[in-house]
Design a protein around this nucleic acid. Structure first.
Lengths: 244, 244
DNA sequence: CGTTAAGTTGACACGACTCAAAGGCGGTGG
DNA sequence: CCACCGCCTTTGAGTCGTGTCAACTTAACG
């Protein structure tokens, strides 16, 4: 599926850290034991104490919580190259759930193996830190979106973010990328009802910003959509230092 | 202001990590160069590259972003014992601003000094990790609040969180704690208008859940307010391992 | 006291939610 | 190959929460 000397993880990390060939080889080696998980499966649940770190190699997953009155809130997307619970052993137990959206290829890495990897290479340690901090920055940005943007801009912003994140790991194809979510799942991400997300999608479609068809998003003009959604990619910190 | 062998930082970290006396002494030593910053001052701005780590020893501060159309979104509170930009040097430049709400006592710690501290004690390194991960967990919870709770529960949840966080660092006094924010600042935190936060506060006051007076919050019955706001403190991970 | 920032109130508009039903679409089995 | 079924998606109608604007009151402070 992935070429022998790179995968979604190394592609992603190279946007934030310098890795030499030995580092990359170690990271690729780590992912050889991937297993496939079907769509809509919980990888880990609130209250559990994970004994390993999980890495999404391909497919879409999410972090979510369930509320008292039964509604669901999705707080983050886990795309290829993303860790599910890096360092969560420090916190003890999970305070949220992680589930697959689509079929996923998942690697489970023993905590000890992880520690060894980090000890052995300060560059890898730094790269993992970078990934963690970027996730935090994304969460902050989502908070801004929820707090201060109307539905259509909120959706536009999310679609721009996904475009950049998926491009960074080679999953976007031109102006188009897969999005294997139902409208209800998008609604739970953006804090709205599924009826309203439906009408919002239709509006973006009609105005020509974006096209949804068959679990795939095509953005007509990335700059236009970004302007509309007030999207600035700085918070993704995709500076690609390896090319400087 | 603080006793010689503890301060807001050590009080907080002891809820998540075991520190011995030498560790605590180092942390207290680190904070001896605190300086006072007036209220409503930007500590650091979007786009800047911080050359040191900042720690809030006393007072209230926040992370915020400004949007295109001029509105403000507050994405996090920095309370006594919280780091402003731990490890942000890895990300390069700030993607948001940090400002004081009230007068604050702030410590600026050189990156090198920080690195030495972490290298010297794995317990301190782990404690800092813990603090970072808790902040991330809080952000996730805020996302849930914004997405899926009505105004009154959102406010109730925030007040419960602050109660627990401030108690952990010895700032809450019984069922009461200082909250040096204007209603507009609370509104920008919860993603609502200042008019509506005003009416929401009045409702919580009338129903007897909570009392706002003179920049101070008094919670009549913590359990009642928590029930109302669907607040469960698990995400704060305040397990206090040092007492086990 | 005078001045300014913060809190409070009322009226009105609109975005978003809910409920409910209809339409599309992709499976599976006869 | 068609019929059926279940899951999404789409549509309509009515309600309610929240935003906006603007005026007024109170508190803070010199």
């Amino acid at each position: 599926m992935s070429s022998p000397d790179s995968n979604a993880l190394t592609l992603k990390l190279e946007h934030g850290a310098k890795l030499d060939d030995a580092d990359k080889a170690k990271l690729v080696q780590m992912t050889r034991s991937a297993r496939d998980v079907r769509a809509h499966i919980d990888l880990i649940r609130e209250g559990e104490k994970p004994d390993c770190v999980r890495l999404i190699l391909s497919g879409f997953a999410c972090r979510y919580k369930l509320l008292d009155h039964g509604s669901r809130s999705i707080m983050g997307y886990l795309l290829p190259g993303d860790f599910c619970d890096l360092h969560v052993s420090i916190l003890g137990e999970m305070d949220h759930n992680i589930a697959t959206f689509s079929e996923c290829s998942v690697v489970e890495i023993d905590n000890n193996e992880m520690d060894e990897l980090i000890e052995a290479s300060p560059r890898i340690a730094r790269a993992f830190w970078w990934a963690e901090l970027v996730e935090q920055a994304i969460q902050r940005q989502w908070l801004v979106n929820m707090a201060r943007r109307p539905a259509d801009q909120r959706l536009a912003h999310l679609l721009c973010e996904l475009y950049h994140r998926l491009r960074a790991v080679g999953v976007a194809d031109g102006n188009s990328y897969p999005l294997p979510l139902t409208q209800e799942e998008i609604a739970d991400t953006l804090g709205m009802s599924s009826v309203h997300i439906n009408r919002t999608i239709q509006r973006l479609r009609r105005t020509g910003y974006v096209n949804f068809q068959g679990r795939r998003v095509t953005i007509s003009n990335v700059q236009n959509l970004a302007d509309f959604g007030d999207f600035r990619p700085n918070y993704l910190h995709l500076c690609n230092p390896s090319r400087t």
